[in-house]
Design a protein around this nucleic acid. Sequence first.
DNA 1: TTGAATTTTCAGGAAACTGTGAAAATTGTA
DNA 2: TACAATTTTCACAGTTTCCTGAAAATTCAA
Lengths: 189, 189
Amino acid sequence: MNLTPLIQTFVLHFGEMGSRWGINRTVGQIYALLYVAREPLNADEIAEALGFSRSNVSMGLKELESWRLTRVQHKPGDRREYFSAPEDIWAIFRTLAEERRKREIDPTLSMLREALMENVSGAEDQHAQQRMREMHDLIELTTNWFSDVQRLEPKNLVSLMKMGSRVQKFLDLKDKLKLVTGGKSPPHA
Amino acid sequence: MNLTPLIQTFVLHFGEMGSRWGINRTVGQIYALLYVAREPLNADEIAEALGFSRSNVSMGLKELESWRLTRVQHKPGDRREYFSAPEDIWAIFRTLAEERRKREIDPTLSMLREALMENVSGAEDQHAQQRMREMHDLIELTTNWFSDVQRLEPKNLVSLMKMGSRVQKFLDLKDKLKLVTGGKSPPHA
DNA sequence: TTGAATTTTCAGGAAACTGTGAAAATTGTA
DNA sequence: TACAATTTTCACAGTTTCCTGAAAATTCAA
């Protein structure tokens, strides 16, 4: 690895973290490198910088592409592809959340919905269905809310977050004044 | 596995999902089983139901305990320990979030803070530091907000979530009326 | 079309992770 | 204290995942 110590620490950390998240070390390191790099990098430069084989880098980049986390561009007079991470970290965050939803949450919700359609009789199964319903409702509520909120302008999202739990006071306000919504029922209810 | 088909599907699904999340299959299946079980189960019952060795179950349960996701109780005249998942799924969710924060987010924030303290000169490192700062700020903002919001009563949390992005309208209201906060600066700013 | 540059695929060795049974340790009771 | 019940530890065999180099495929310029 011919990286500055600063960048090396960062890259190694995300390699480790990746493994805990079911993402392989190579992929974590490649993305960490792209994320901090000043310029887009080609596959050879990545392999060189991280000490991985060229083919390993190729597979890692494909994996990242399947997550829509990279941008590819070309330089004039150079056939090689140059990879980078998006400038906007909120965009990265959103993409990550969308992909995880598609790959993990949605299949889980489908499985739960099918299980809840079953007509069961035993007390064991009835209880299990009740628990699955609770899980289904929680997952559906939180993910719908998450994608709702992510549609806000980043600026507004930040100010919402900075309010933290004081947002509650506005909900109380709403209950008292019945303003704005005029009593319409909420979505996803 | 001598489980009803309904429960078996659920258990197998979480075994698979677990692997994608860096949680091993055994642990995922054990927790799925505890989650839907009507009664607390002892280790032998779990091993029997899932077809795992007794020792594997023992290790899986220890792992779950280290995540604070299980409750242990005893039956009168029976020395064995009986395991269950908490009744309240919001509590499970909160515990999971707290543990992940402790294990993954906090170490990452420390690493980033240390990297940001470094006094660097090269343009490469200066850019890297800038990117790390953006990441640090985003992680800190979202996790602080998350733990703030999780302190709300579940009932209020649910109504907040059901509002989705319409919460924005209340922020506009705040800006117009300068009510409630009276212009105090927000936390974590 | 040819061929050099580049990327991708893939078989198989290396490394990491899992799951087991046997043995050790712990726990509770007589 | 002794001992039976129960839980935990651990070395190792089995399995999965990772990574590589060699070969195949693709791309593009001449």
